[in-house]
């Protein structure tokens, strides 16, 4: 593409409320990624404005964006993006390292709490290579929520996971959402989108559909009836 100017998003008007659990859907090239980049303060819109927690993100410089990401955003990626050869605990500590107001004692406490809330307190000293895919993604979620963000943005969090693990991850998101955390995930799979409260479909840079899910699936109860995979548990 190079220098060709592409308007990945145009004329979008969307409100995200506190405690929303939104699934962003759409084909590739529909503008999902650009939406997530802007929502995650990694990028700023060329026109229009993005208000995050009463801050006009479009007017901020790079350092201010970094600061905002550190304070208000939690990222979860399809490929986990954990630092290799760095323990689960230290991976979770990473966002707090860039927050000079957090003491190292507080950093450790909060990180352990975050790992506990994803059920991995006992794995805190394992390296990513010693964890299964689902566990790695749970570490990534712990990292995303350790800074008490306004919103957690997850880009295809289940894309690299099998069905059962995907449901596990969704159950964690549902649990966090019931605690009041806003979660936005990008997904291809309608099955996964069915666990959320609101589905937004992008097409050619515009919002094609935006509806409330009447009866979201409950991941936690489904897990009880799902067969346990040995591969997952024997590690």
């Amino acid at each position: 593409m190079g220098d060709l100017e592409v308007h990945a998003l145009r004329g979008i008007n969307m409100d995200v409320h506190k405690s929303d659990f939104i699934a962003i859907m759409g084909k590739s090239g529909s503008g999902k990624s650009t939406f997530m980049n802007i929502a995650g303060c990694l990028d700023v819109p060329t026109k229009g404005e993005y208000m995050l927690d009463n801050v006009d993100v479009g007017k901020l410089n790079k350092d201010q964006l970094a600061h905002l990401r550190n304070k208000k955003i939690g990222f979860v990626f399809q490929s986990f993006n954990l630092l290799s050869r760095t323990s689960a605990l230290e991976n979770v500590e990473l966002p707090l390292m860039y927050n000079s107001k957090v003491s190292s004692k507080e950093m450790k406490e909060r990180s352990i709490n975050a790992l506990e809330s994803v059920g991995l307190a006992d794995r805190s000293h394992h390296l990513p290579s010693q964890l299964s895919g689902g566990e790695q993604q749970r570490v990534a979620i712990a990292r995303a929520l350790v800074n008490n963000p306004v919103v957690i943005l997850a880009d295809e969090p289940t894309g690299n996971l099998d069905t059962r693990t995907s449901v596990e991850v969704m159950s964690i998101f549902q649990k966090l959402n019931t605690q009041g955390i806003t979660v936005i995930i990008v997904t291809h799979e309608p099955d996964i989108a069915a666990y959320t409260n609101r589905n937004v479909t992008f097409r050619d840079g515009r919002i094609q559909k935006d509806f409330i899910v009447e009866k979201p699936r409950n991941a936690a109860t489904e897990l009880l009836t799902m067969p346990v995979l040995t591969e997952e548990e024997t590690i």
């Binding site: 995650g40 990694l42 790079k62 350092d63 970094a66 600061h67 990401r69 550190n70 304070k71 990222f75 993006n81 954990l82 630092l83 990473l94 966002p95 860039y98 927050n99 990292r143 800074n147």
Partner: peptide, 15 residues
Amino acid sequence: REIGIRMGVGARGRD
């Protein structure tokens, strides 16, 4: 990648 992750979680250029 590592640099990207660090920036993603709030590392500034100078960090």
